[in-house]
Write a protein that binds this DNA or RNA. Structure first.
Lengths: 149, 149
DNA sequence: GGTGAAATCCTTCCCTT
DNA sequence: AAGGGAAGGATTTCACC
């Protein structure tokens, strides 16, 4: 889909605060809210806007630890291994990558004990993975609200 | 902040779709919208809800490539190195980690040429970093809307 | 893109439990 | 301390220009 500067302005605003009323978006970009509504609907349908999500503080809901997990897959068993990962509740993202790891996973756990159990019982010890490395997140120094548009 | 099951239900709904009208949230959890409003406000103030963000398809806005970048910092120059990273528009997240890398960065670039320029001119070649590894994301197999609450 | 209007929603205050 | 009712003003969502 072709996006013009007006579309991009709308995206910037909704990326920063997805609950901004369309009427206020309209005010800021100097258009009617009907136009904003129309453009947003088109971007939703085209898949430019994939959704709107509340950003929850992980600690406040009981997740004291998060980590990046690098994995090396066994040849020929990639699909089931990936499906297995996606089924684990603590797994938030699964990416295929080049470089040292075939798969990069973002996981959240209640505490280090829970992380240990997750890794040993449900990831590293699982068939389909040859090798793993857990990189525990000590802190997040910076996190943008979205992409520069 | 103490969260009860009602709070968690609200969080689940807003994590999945942050633009859900409070009136509908109220309907779903069988309470009044005044109550939903009140609880959401308290969770926002307490920092449980950090924000609401539209989820934009990176490709649709011109980011054809993303990558994880692992970095090893020089001793004693961590702070300026991290501040430098946070100032780059292509950098979306900067995490301090244990394991092979001191810093794990998530970057987005227009194409491989732009990624190359970002890495050589603005990250790997920068003072404060001793070593780096770029893990290009070939695909994202799974991405949850939020945390399991 | 914009207008206009009806339906819906947000927000606040106040009352009840 | 927590939830609900009510009412205003604002917003969303259409059809139509």
């Amino acid at each position: 889909m072709e996006l013009d500067e007006t579309d991009r302005q709308i995206l910037r605003i909704l990326q920063e605060d997805a609950r901004t009323p369309f009427s206020e978006v309209a005010r800021r970009i100097d258009m009617s809210s009907a136009t904003v509504h129309d453009r947003v609907s088109r971007m939703e349908e085209a898949g430019v806007i994939k959704g709107y999500h509340a950003d929850i503080d992980a600690r406040e809901v009981g997740y004291g630890v998060s980590a990046f997990v690098g994995l090396r897959t066994d040849q020929g068993r990639e699909d089931e291994a990936l499906a297995h990962l996606a089924g684990l509740p603590e797994v938030k993202e699964v990416h295929l990558t080049t470089g040292e790891w075939d798969v990069m996973v973002r996981v959240y756990a209640e505490d280090t004990d829970a992380l240990r159990e997750l890794m040993f019982d449900h990831i590293a010890g699982t068939e389909g993975f040859a090798r793993s490395q857990t990189m525990v997140v000590l802190g997040t120094d910076y996190e943008a609200d979205g992409l520069p548009i």
